[in-house]
Design a protein around this nucleic acid. Sequence first.
RNA 1: UCCUGCUUAGCUCAGUCGGUAGAGCGGGUGGCUGUUAACCACUAGGUCGGCGGUUCAAGUCCGUCAGCAGGAGCCA
Length: 459
Amino acid sequence: MGKRILDILNTETSQPSITAEGWIQTVRTSGAVTFFEIGDGSTIFNLQAVADATLPDYTQLQHVPTGAAVRCKGELVASPAKGQKWELHLSHMEILGGVDADYPLQKKRHSFEFMRTIAHVRPRARTFQAVFRVRHALQMAVHRFFDEQGFIQVHTPIITASDCEGAGQMFRVTTLDMDKLPRKDGRIDFGKDFFGREASLTVSGQLEGEIFALAFKNIYTFGPTFRAENSHTARHAAEFWMIEPEMAFCDLAGDRAVAEDFIKYIVTEVLNRCSDDIDFFNQWIEKGLRDKLESLVQAEFATVPYTEAVAMLEKSGEKFEYPVKWGLDLQSEHERYLTEKLLKKPMFVIDYPRDIKAFYMRLNDDEKTVAAMDLLVPRVGEIIGGSQREERIDVLDKQLRHFDLNPEDYWWYRDLRRFGGVAHAGFGLGFERMLMYVTGMQNIRDVIPFARTPGNAEF
RNA sequence: UCCUGCUUAGCUCAGUCGGUAGAGCGGGUGGCUGUUAACCACUAGGUCGGCGGUUCAAGUCCGUCAGCAGGAGCCA
C-alpha cells in the first residue's frame, strides 16, 4: 500500500522515489508532456503526475481515461508551475483498473440531479469527496464533544413496538405474509406478527433516551431515524441520522447552554480539520460560507421568548406571506427574518404556546406556554428543537389528556416520573441538516451517501 | 396530497413569430516543449419523455399520461 495523496502532498522535502495510488481525475497533454491528476479521496487536492517520452509505453499511457485506477512510481520534486507545491515525475505507471467508454463522470460540472442517478460513482467526484470527508469529521466531532463532556452514548432501538413516539408517519416492520394476512374481528391480527404486536422503525430515540438520562445523568443518542412522510423537499429524507442529548438535573437554560456549546464545538472542529474542504465549498457551493461559520463560532447566541418574537415580527412592518399571530407557529420566513435581519446572529426562541408543541414539554407557570426552544441560525432557520421535559406526573397526565392521548399507553414513561423523577431536558439535531449548514449544500440527498426518499431506494 | 416548473446528442443547455436539429463539454483523430475548467483544427453522435389532437407543416400550439425537480403541509 502506498502513501495517501494527502501525506505525499504534505511532504517537507523532495523524495527520490515514491509510490502513489489512486484514480485518474483528469489528463492534459501539451506537446511532449502529459499531466495526470491523481486523487484518492484523502484530500480535495490531486497529485500531479508528469510524464514525457522517457516513460515506457508513453504513447499508450497518454490515453489513460478519467476514472482509471493507477499505481505511479517516480520522483517527487518541487513543481515549477503554479497550482501545486509538489509533483511526481513518473518513471513508471501501471493501470490497475481500466475504464469502459460509458464511464459517466467527465471532467466538467454535472448537475447534482444527474449525480444522484449514478450514486455508485458519485463519491469519486470532488464535491462529494469533500461532502463525505466533512460528514465523517462532523460525526467524529459530535462524539468527541459529548465524550469530553462526560455524556454516555445510548443505542436506542431502531425497531420499536411503542406507539408513543407519535412524530409523523412510521414505517411498519412485519414478517406477516402480505398475501395471507391473519385477521381477527375483521382487522389484521398483529398478535400473530413477529413481536406479537405492531412494530415500526423508530422516529425518535428521545423517550428511551429519557430512561437512560434518569440513570446516567447525561446521555446522547446518535442513530438512524425513519419517517414515512411523503415529503418532496430538499430538506426531508425517509432515513436520516439524528442526535438527541438528554440531561437530568437540567432545566431549559442548561439545555440552551449545552446546545450553544455543542454547535460551536462541532463547527470549530470542521473549520480546523476540513479547512481545505471548507475553502472548496466557499468557492464553488456557497459564497461566504467560511464567514458564516466563523461568525457563528464567535457569536453570543440570543434568547427571545416566543411572545416577544411575535411582537417583534408584528411591529417590524415587514410583509410576510403567512400571518404572524400569537398561537400560530413561526414559518421559516419569520424565523429567517428574526435571525438574519433583526438580530443578525443565532437565536433561541423559547416558551412556545403549548398547543403547537408536543405533550412531553414542561408546562410553564403561565399554563399557556411550554419550556421549549428552537435554535434559529441565519440562512437556514431552525436547526435544533428541544425542551425541558414535564417531570410532574399530575401535569403530564393533564397534558396527555389535553392532547387526547391515553396515559396507559405511556405507562413506562409515566413511571419515570414516579421513580426518582427529576427535572430533565434535551434537544434534537438532524445530522444531515447540520451537514447542509456546514457545507452549504442545498439538498439533503446530496449529503447522504445513498439517500432514501419517496420512490427512491435504488442503491 | 396540493401548487409551480422542467423533460432536445453521453453531460450541460440554446432553439425567436409554427417552416430542413444547434453550441459547449465529453468521445475519436491530428497539432502544440509545462498544463492545471489547458488550448487549436477536424470528426462521429438525435424516436426533441410517451400517446393523441390542431395545422399544408409541430421541438415549438392544445389535451393527456409518465418521470424528475422546487414550493406548501409536516418536521429534523
